[in-house]
Design a protein around this nucleic acid. Structure first.
Lengths: 146, 146
DNA sequence: GTGCCCGCTCAAGTCGGCTTGAGCGCAACC
DNA sequence: GGTTGCGCTCAAGCCGACTTGAGCGGGCAC
């Protein structure tokens, strides 16, 4: 079995990305095709793996494309440090994000079920939570009262 | 105690936002000051609550500002439906996002600790996972083989 | 009375991540 | 031999969420 090659439109179809996005990834050096048949991009298996990883890390703006590049092309340069730093930082950030998502989810659930016409003004439950947030926000800055 | 008023720079300081961002929120109608002293914006307590809620929902790009507006200004218009739809949809989206964040986190943790120089090519663990992702990606599209 | 700080408006600029459009090449099919 | 389909390049455009800059006003400390 000779090395399997995929055209840009195939890759796009498999991964649900736009062809133009793949060309853009090539352009910025994030995902280069394994080679070309003439002028035509030909992707190999390794590029599919790489793309899968890129999608995983980049989705929902978790990482920028630049960070993604740094994170996954780790040790090619012999310098693992940059990659590891980005990765460690991202992990911390993601954990916080999960926390905040959960918090948002709870508030949304409340909004969904709260019968008040204007929950921010009228709902004591939501109000209490926001009051707390605002108070600590003001409190963490010195000179809280104007 | 007369109604407490906050200047734009105070609000910015308390919430860690830029003054220009608050002016922008005013401009798009997302967060209007309670009133003006002359030309100068004066925010009240309710606006602080509203901003707290906006920040919670908008952070990390969970919701766009437009969605946030729809979600929190729920029933003023008498039409709760739009708000509830946005909220329900966002909740679903957030749950998926949490799933994906966890997945990413695991991969990142692996990348952080994996000793291979180029994990995508050399690490069997990561490789196996990506292989699975790629195979199902190809499999979910008919005509998987080129 | 002038310098400084804070605030204002309005228009234009920025950034990331693509998308779109013009203009072209090559291969296949009728 | 024309047209259809896929691919290419390069430059420009777009969107959201702000930021920046120019130019102005009001208040008050020195």
């Amino acid at each position: 079995m000779v090395a399997m090659r995929y055209s840009i439109s195939e890759v796009a179809r498999y991964f649900g990305t736009a062809v133009s996005a793949l060309r853009y990834y090539d352009q910025i050096g994030l995902l280069r095709p394994a080679g070309r048949r003439g002028t035509v991009r030909a992707y190999g298996r390794d590029e599919l793996y790489r793309l899968a990883l890129i999608q995983l890390l980049h989705q929902d703006g978790m990482m920028s494309l630049a960070e993604t590049a740094t994170a996954i092309s780790g040790n090619q340069t012999g310098d693992q440090t940059a990659g590891r730093l980005v990765i460690a930082e991202s992990m911390r950030e993601m954990q916080h994000q999960i926390q905040r998502l959960r918090e948002s989810e709870q508030v949304l659930e409340h909004l969904l079920t709260c019968p008040r016409k204007d929950p921010i003004r009228d709902c004591p439950v939501l109000r209490a939570q926001l009051e707390h947030t605002v108070d600590t926000a003001i409190g963490t800055v010195d000179g809280g009262s104007p």
